[in-house]
Simulated assay, not measured.
Amino acid sequence: MTLPLRAIAVFDVVARCCSLTKAAAELYVTPSAVSQQIHSLEQHLGTTLLKKAGRGVALTEAGERYFEMIAEDVQRITEATQRIRGFRSRSALTVRTTPTLGSKWLLPRLQKFLDANPDVELRLNATTEPTDFSREAVDVEIRHGEGQWPGVYVEGLAEENFLPVCAPSYAPANSMDAGELEQHRLIYSVKAQLQWTQWFASAGVTPSAEWTRLLFDRSHMAIDAAADGLGVALDSNLMMWRELREGTLVCPVRNSPQFKLTTQWVVCPFDHLRKAKVQLFLEWLRQERSEWQNEQRLFTFSPDGVNESADKR
């Protein structure tokens, strides 16, 4: 059976606009022509995709499911068609990353990559969902986990040091022992590989049955909450490098246990390593990693929370 590709493309626009009139304007056709295409698609599928909603339209339950299934593929076809037609002369690089690494570590460094590679059009996709490279147009992913994914290239981004942190206004650096932490509000990143129970066990502390918690499903939210003085968070120096360097976060615990983990991994199919744009990105990423690691060796955090260069000590 022949797919009604034109009708599918029209439905994609209508679903995004939630308006037949706006979709018609974007497609340079009449609203009547849009309605005809939608009706044709509904007949083909044997179900209703749209319903009236005030002056506009809304997706039915079947319409929502259908749009979720086709939206990404329609976008891929659109971009592929534009590139083949010569609409874009630049090379498009799609990188998927975890939200926290993307906002806290990768984004502040991207200017150097863009300046060095002006012909590369970068698309950054932040999500915790692992990429299905067989059907998704993603060149490289930076994935959170333990690094054990068979059948793909895997390279650890960097070893991270996990430590408790808070705003210096909440508690000064090195101002308490590990056992005192349970008296404070503890900020949780619920998807992090290291949790407070593990930290307390390593510190030799048996916390009471109850303590005050603040929970987030994203580490960048936990980090920001700590910097805003809402409590004490447990996260890695990779994600908090800027806050630690600038002194907006300090470690309030004397002799905090050391937890070194690699939680972020560069992942892609082996054949993607032959792509010039992927090679450029990985070379730049390794250089940024090296500079960050050198910065960690050059700086320490003094008892009063002020950063000091190793050359001055």
Rank of each mutant, 00 (worst) to 15 (best):
S208F: 03
L238G: 04
D224C: 06
E129H: 11
P257K: 10
S256N: 07
G204E: 02
P168H: 04
S175N: 05
P150T: 13
Y188S: 12
A226E: 03
Y188N: 12
S134Q: 14
A222S: 13
Q258P: 02
Q198I: 11
L234Y: 04
V154E: 03
S219R: 06
N174C: 13
A173K: 03
P168Y: 03
L215Q: 14
V253D: 08
L157N: 06
P164K: 05
W241I: 12
G147F: 06
S208P: 01
R254W: 00
V152H: 09
R254Y: 00
K260L: 12
M221E: 15
S219V: 10
D177S: 15
G156S: 04
C251S: 12
P252W: 01
A167W: 02
T206W: 06
P164Q: 07
N161Y: 08
V253S: 05
G156T: 02
V232I: 09
V152D: 01
P172D: 00
L186T: 08
T128V: 10
Y170C: 04
R135K: 12
G231D: 01
E141L: 06
T206K: 14
T262Y: 00
S202G: 11
N174Y: 08
E180V: 08
P257D: 09
T262R: 09
N161E: 10
Q148S: 14
R135E: 10
L244T: 05
M221F: 10
T128A: 13
E160I: 07
E159K: 13
L261E: 11
P252V: 03
A222D: 02
N255C: 13
T248Y: 03
K260I: 15
E146A: 15
S189M: 00
M176D: 08
P164R: 08
L157V: 15
A233F: 02
V165T: 15
E180L: 10
W199F: 10
G229A: 10
T262M: 02
R218Q: 14
R245L: 11
T212W: 00
E155Q: 14
E210I: 11
R185I: 12
A226K: 02
L234Q: 04
Y188V: 15
L181Q: 02
F162E: 06
F133H: 06
G145N: 01
E129Y: 07
W211M: 12
L186G: 05
I142G: 05
R242C: 03
A137D: 12
E129D: 12
A227W: 01
Q198G: 07
S189H: 07
V232R: 03
D139M: 01
E136F: 02
A158S: 12
A209R: 14
W196E: 09
S189N: 13
R213V: 07
N237K: 05
L234H: 03
N161V: 15
Q195A: 13
M176G: 09
